[in-house]
Design a protein around this nucleic acid. Structure first.
Length: 431
DNA sequence: TCTGGGGTCCTAGGACCC
DNA sequence: TCTGGGGTCCTAGGACCC
C-alpha cells in the first residue's frame, strides 16, 4: 500500500501557524508581484473564488468579504515543508516528497497494522509537531491514494484518513469521483471523455483497455491501470534524482523597455539558475534565455524572443552562465517593445563530477578559478544573506535625479509578505 | 493600473544512418 | 512510367502535475 499525505491549503496554513488569530478568517496567498490568488483557505474556496484569479479582480468582485491577503513567503513555506517531511520520515518506512505540500509514503511491511488508525495518528502527530493540518489517503496505487486523500479532506467523518483497502471501497470511491479530478486526467483529456459520456472515475475505469490505449496513449493507460489497483506510476527517487532542466523566470512589476534594465533581470535569473545547478552538483551544456511582451495588453505590439548558448565545456559558474545569457539577450532584444516577462532555462544537465571538457578550448586553470569564485560567492551569500555578493550585471539600476548614481532596488512586489518566522531572527524584532 | 512559476513525460516527425 | 526498407536520435510541442 501507498499513502499520500497532503497538507490542507498549504500556503494558507503556513501563514496561520504563526497567526492563530486568523484561524477562521478567509485567507489568500498571492503569486509574485501580488498578481494572482495561488492559495485559498477553505472559507475562500467556499465563496467560489477560483484559483488563479487575478488579485485585483478579486478585490473588485468581493469588496466586503473580509479576505486577508498575503504575498508569498517562500522561505517560510519551504521551511514548513521540511518540518512536515521530517515528521513523516520519523513514522513511515519510506517517504518520497512529491511537491512542496505532498509526499508519498511507501507502506511496506505494514500488512498487520490498522492503516486507518495509523493514518489518523500520523496526521495528529504532524499537526501537533508542526502546526500543519494534513490529510492522508491510503490505497494500492498512487492514483488511488491521491483519490483517497481527497475523500479524507472532504468528509470530516474520515478523521483526515481515508483508506481504499478492498474492492468494495474501490468501487465506491471510483463511482463517486469526478473523472476530471483524477490524477493524470487534465482538461484536454476530460473534454474528450465528456464527449463519449465518461463522467466519473468509474466510467473511465470501465472503458476497454485497448480503447484507452488507442485514444489516450500510454499515459492514459497507466492512469486507467492505476485505477484498477495495478501500480504503474513510479515516483521512486523523484526527490533525489537531479533535475533535467532548471528554470528561473519572472514577470516584472512594471513593463520594461530598456535593454539595460532587461539585462539586470536576466542576469539575476541566470545567476539563480547557476546557483541551483551548483546546489545539485550539476553542470549544464546549454543556457536558453527568453523575453516576452505583455500578453494582456492587446493594444501593444507583441513579441517573444528566445535563444540559446552552448558551452563547449559544461559549466555551473555564475559568470559563464550570466555571460552566455547576456550574449543571447543582445541578439533577441527588439527596440520599442514593452517587456513584461523574462526567464532563463539551463538544460543538457549532467553531473559536475564527470565533466567532459572541450578538446580544443579546454583551459583547466580558467575553469578552476571560475569554479572557486562561484563557490566562494555561495559561501558568502549563505552566511550573510542572499545577494550579499552579486555580479555587476545583476544590479538593478534605479537612477538618481542627476543620472550619475545607481542604486540596488528590489525587483519583486511583495507588499503583504509575512515575516520569515521560522528562518530569520529578524522576524521577531519588536519595533 | 493590475493577470505566477517550475517541472516531467510522451509523441510525431525530421534528419540521419546503413 | 518506374525511386527500398529498417533503424536510431533529436527536437518541438502537447499534456499533465503542483
Amino acid at each position: 500500500m501507498v499513502g499520500l499525505v497532503d497538507c490542507d491549503n498549504f500556503f494558507c496554513s503556513c501563514e496561520r501557524v504563526f497567526r492563530p488569530d486568523l484561524a477562521k478568517t478567509p485567507l489568500v496567498v498571492l503569486s509574485n508581484n501580488d498578481g494572482c490568488v495561488v492559495a485559498r483557505s477553505r472559507e475562500v474556496k467556499n465563496m467560489g473564488i477560483p484559483e488563479g484569479m487575478p488579485y485585483y479582480k478579486m478585490k473588485q468582485q468581493y469588496p466586503a468579504s473580509g479576505i486577508v491577503a498575503f504575498s508569498s513567503n517562500y522561505a517560510l513555506y519551504a521551511d514548513m515543508s521540511a518540518r512536515v517531511v521530517s515528521i513523516l520520515r520519523s513514522e513511515a518506512p519510506d517517504v518520497i516528497q512529491y511537491s512542496i505540500d505532498e509526499a508519498f509514503l511507501l507502506l511496506e511491511g505494514m500488512d498487520n497494522i490498522d492503516l486507518h488508525k495509523w493514518g489518523v495518528d500520523l496526521c495528529k502527530k504532524v499537526q501537533k509537531c508542526t502546526g500543519m493540518p494534513v490529510s492522508i489517503g491510503i490505497a494500492a496505487t498512487n492514483t488511488l491514494a491521491k483519490m483517497a486523500s481527497k475523500y479524507a479532506k472532504k468528509y470530516p467523518a474520515y478523521n483526515k484518513c481515508c483508506v481504499i483497502g478492498n474492492e468494495e471501497q474501490r468501487y465506491k470511491a471510483l463511482s463517486l469521483f469526478p473523472a476530471g479530478d483524477v490524477w493524470g486526467i487534465g482538461r484536454r483529456m476530460m473534454r474528450k471523455l465528456e464527449y463519449i459520456g465518461v463522467n466519473t472515475a468509474y466510467d473511465f475505469a470501465s472503458l476497454p483497455k485497448d480503447y484507452v490505449r488507442r485514444r489516450f496513449h500510454v499515459t492514459g493507460e497507466r492512469t486507467w491501470k492505476e485505477l484498477q489497483g495495478i501500480p504503474c506510476i513510479n515516483v521512486d527517487g523523484l526527490d533525489t534524482v537531479s533535475k533535467k532542466t532548471i528554470v528561473t523566470s519572472r514577470s516584472f512589476p512594471e513593463m520594461i523597455r530598456e535593454l539595460g534594465d532587461l539585462r539586470s533581470h536576466v542576469a539575476n535569473y541566470a545567476a539563480r539558475c547557476a546557483m541551483k545547478l551548483r546546489r545539485q552538483n550539476s553542470v549544464c551544456g546549454l543556457v536558453t534565455a527568453f523575453i516576452q511582451s505583455n500578453h494582456f495588453r492587446e493594444d501593444l505590439s507583441q513579441y517573444e524572443g528566445s535563444g540559446s548558448y552552448f558551452f563547449s565545456t559544461p559549466t555551473n559558474t555564475t559568470n559563464e552562465i550570466v555571460a552566455g545569457a547576456m550574449d543571447i539577450l543582445e541578439h533577441i532584444f527588439r527596440k520599442g517593445i514593452y517587456y513584461k516577462r523574462a526567464g532563463i532555462m539551463v538544460s543538457d544537465i549532467s553531473s559536475a563530477n564527470t565533466i567532459q571538457p572541450d578538446l580544443f578550448e579546454y583551459n583547466p586553470e580558467r575553469r578552476r578559478k571560475f569554479s572557486e569564485l562561484s563557490s566562494t560567492i555561495d559561501r558568502i551569500n549563505s552566511r550573510l544573506g542572499a545577494d550579499t555578493v552579486v555580479l555587476g550585471a545583476q544590479q538593478y539600476r534605479e537612477r538618481s535625479e542627476d543620472g550619475k548614481s545607481v542604486k540596488f532596488v528590489n525587483a519583486i512586489r511583495r507588499a503583504m509578505k509575512s515575516p520569515d518566522y521560522s528562518t530569520s531572527l529578524g522576524a521577531f524584532v519588536v519595533h
